[in-house]
């Protein structure tokens, strides 16, 4: 390295930190750490892979087991408000008591499965509407001039810069009986009485579609943007009209994006709590709200846990189905 020449900051930092790193690696504590890892046949590479697994274990697997445990307990008026699964009785007997009643309750009470069904319905229709709106948008973005694409992408992501809650609240102001839309329509003389939009399923659909649309557009855009334009030229060359070329070439090749976008909207919408709570009415009871009521209003932790576990199972099943679909779409592409 010449003294006269300019050395970039990064290189200078690397050069300066090298002896420090060398001594660090030789420190007894770290050596012990790496030796221990080595004893369990974990290499440096393995340690890196370990991080996401450790994360999942800490923040997903362990909480999941705790919730599963609570879902099999009885509700009691105590602190915490559920019974223990494992208990010593008469000194020498270890008693394990599993209460499957909570799950039975979910099946027996129509409220629950109706709420599940309603959640699936609302999430499915919302995801479908997102697809209908998002596909043309993503298509137009992918076909836009290259200098424009990043700007358009930026505009799609821009709403995330404002709080999600604020944006949902804003819809109340728009959809209210004395809100923006009704005021305009009345002022324009189109209607005399305000149209009831707030506290209906319609408002919930608007809220979900509005909030989740970017999650549909982004994966769609990324698949459509990669689509080779010469394929469409080849189709045209072989006598295929543009619309037919869209149906036979573009659409099948963008299926991975459709499946990804659909599940990115469908799965979170399934457990949505805030939007139906703020915009929905009596009809828009979704499972997220049932869970909230059980947990906070009834203090029925075991039932709430059972609701959560059942929903997780539902989502996992749907994801497995989606995985299958995606594989199929990918082999097709």
């Amino acid at each position: 390295m010449s003294r006269a020449g300019y050395v970039p900051l990064g290189e200078r930092m690397a050069t300066a930190s090298e002896p420090l790193l060398r001594t660090l690696v030789r420190l007894p504590l770290l050596r012990w750490f790496f030796n221990t890892l080595g004893r369990f046949a974990i290499s440096g590479r393995g340690a890196v892979v370990l991080v996401p697994y450790a994360w999942l274990l800490l923040f997903f697997a362990i909480p999941f087991v705790i919730v599963l445990k609570i879902s099999l307990a009885d509700q009691v008026i105590a602190q915490p408000p559920y019974t223990a699964l494992v208990q010593w009785t008469e000194d020498t007997y270890l008693q394990i008591k599993l209460n499957l009643g909570n799950y039975l309750f979910l099946v027996q009470d129509a409220l629950y499965w109706k709420a599940y069904l309603n959640s699936v319905k609302i999430a499915f229709i919302s995801a479908f509407v997102c697809l209908l709106i998002g596909y043309p948008m993503a298509y137009a973005m992918a076909r836009a001039e290259e200098s424009w694409r990043n700007v358009l992408l930026m505009l799609v992501v821009l709403p995330f810069w404002t709080s999600f809650l604020l944006r949902v609240y804003a819809w109340i102001g728009i959809l209210n009986n004395t809100g923006l839309i009704n005021n305009w329509l009345i002022a324009a003389g189109i209607i005399d009485e305000p149209i009831t939009m707030i506290r209906t399923n319609f408002a919930v659909y608007i809220g979900i579609v509005y909030s989740y649309l970017p999650f549909m557009i982004l994966p769609l855009y990324s698949t459509l943007e990669k689509l080779d334009n010469t394929l469409l030229e080849a189709a045209a060359d072989l006598g295929c009209r543009p619309f037919e070329a869209f149906l036979t070439i573009t659409l099948p090749l963008s299926m991975p994006g459709v499946v990804a976008g659909f599940s990115l909207v469908f799965i979170p919408a399934l457990g949505e709590f805030v939007i139906p709570d703020l915009l929905g009415g009596k009809d828009s009871l979704m499972i997220g709200h049932v869970l909230w009521d059980e947990f906070f209003a009834n203090r029925a932790w075991p039932v709430a846990s059972a609701v959560a576990i059942a929903m997780l199972t539902l989502v996992l099943l749907l994801m497995a189905g989606q995985r299958k679909l995606e594989e199929k779409a990918e082999t097709a592409a």
Partner: peptide, 20 residues
């Protein structure tokens, strides 16, 4: 006259085979 109406076929440099 649009490409799909011309009595012409083309073999593309990249072949442009439909992958699906």
């Amino acid at each position: 006259i649009a490409p799909y109406r011309r009595p012409v076929n083309m073999m593309f440099q990249s072949y442009a085979l439909f992958p699906h």
